[in-house]
């Protein structure tokens, strides 16, 4: 089995993998693959270099980071060791599983949001307790459509949510959105958006207080009302406003128009 086929199989199976390539120095083009809890495949031409780079690459895979690193020919990393030795430049490309978006509430906004989330590469899960609405037929673009209350889903799979993931609560039903917010706040998910008017939001805060969610730390994690203020009206426009907000929260931008802001576009 070639390195390429191992690589392709891992990427397709959503197994995190770093593709490591020597891009400058001895053995240019040499390739190695590293995944968590598996032995490295391939070699960069020196056992010690392989060991050091594999260690670094594992960290990069976990962080989902891609970039160039410099080493000595035997994996030296300290500046003193690198004087007078030719440098090996190594490109470490991290292939981590796609981020996940859980959408609660099987409504029209959900279909539009699921569609846009797929364009951005999310693994999309749609969840609603009502069997008639949570159907494959209505959400063919979703990766999973679950008929479930929020609590069991968070209990079973909430621990897997990370800062790269998003939970969007689009139901306006207090029976559903309060437990969904509770469940999401108990995870490390990076984005929690809750749909509703400002009035709905105020009432929701009262109901959350009734179940004991009052701390500013917790409530400040909620993006509610959900989305950027771009005047979105239709489900599709609203979906764009939501994913725009998710991107802006991740990058820490205030989301003004580029024309009206300064500085480099790509940071």
């Amino acid at each position: 089995m070639s390195l390429y086929s191992i690589f392709a199989e891992r990427v397709r199976s959503n197994i995190p993998v770093a593709l490591i390539t020597v891009i400058d120095g001895p053995n240019i083009g040499a390739t190695m693959l590293v995944s968590p809890s598996t032995e490295a495949e391939g070699t960069l031409g020196d056992a010690e270099l392989d060991r050091v780079v594999a260690r670094d690459a594992l960290g990069e895979v976990e962080a989902g980071r891609t970039g160039v690193r410099h080493y000595g020919p035997q994996g030296q990393t300290t500046p003193e060791d690198l004087i007078d030795t030719p440098t090996v430049r190594v490109f470490i490309e991290a292939f981590s599983p796609p981020p996940t978006m859980w959408i609660f509430g099987a409504v029209d906004f959900t279909a539009a949001l699921a569609k846009v989330a797929k364009v951005l590469g999310y693994y999309v899960v749609v969840c609603d307790a009502r069997e008639v609405f949570a159907t494959r037929r209505r959400f063919p673009m979703a990766d999973e459509v679950l008929v479930s209350w929020p609590a069991p889903l968070f209990t079973q799979r909430g621990a897997a949510l990370t800062s790269r993931d998003a939970v969007c609560i689009l139901t306006h039903d207090p029976k559903f959105d309060v437990p969904a917010v509770q469940g999401a706040l108990a995870t490390n998910v990076g984005y929690i958006g809750v749909m509703g008017s400002r009035k709905t939001h105020a009432k929701r805060l009262e109901r959350l207080a009734e179940v004991g969610i009052t701390s500013t730390d917790q409530l400040s994690r909620l993006m509610s009302p959900i989305g950027l203020d771009i005047g979105a009206r239709t489900p599709e426009e609203t979906a764009i406003s939501i994913v725009g907000e998710i991107i802006a929260r991740r990058t820490g931008r205030g989301a003004p128009s580029l024309r009206d802001s300064d500085g480099p576009i790509h940071k």
Binding site: T21, I23, T66, G67, V68, F91, E93, P264, I265, H266
Partner: peptide
Amino acid sequence: ARVVDIEGSGPRDPG
């Protein structure tokens, strides 16, 4: 061909 590094503004990220 893969983008491995970018200086300044670049349309596509490394990878």
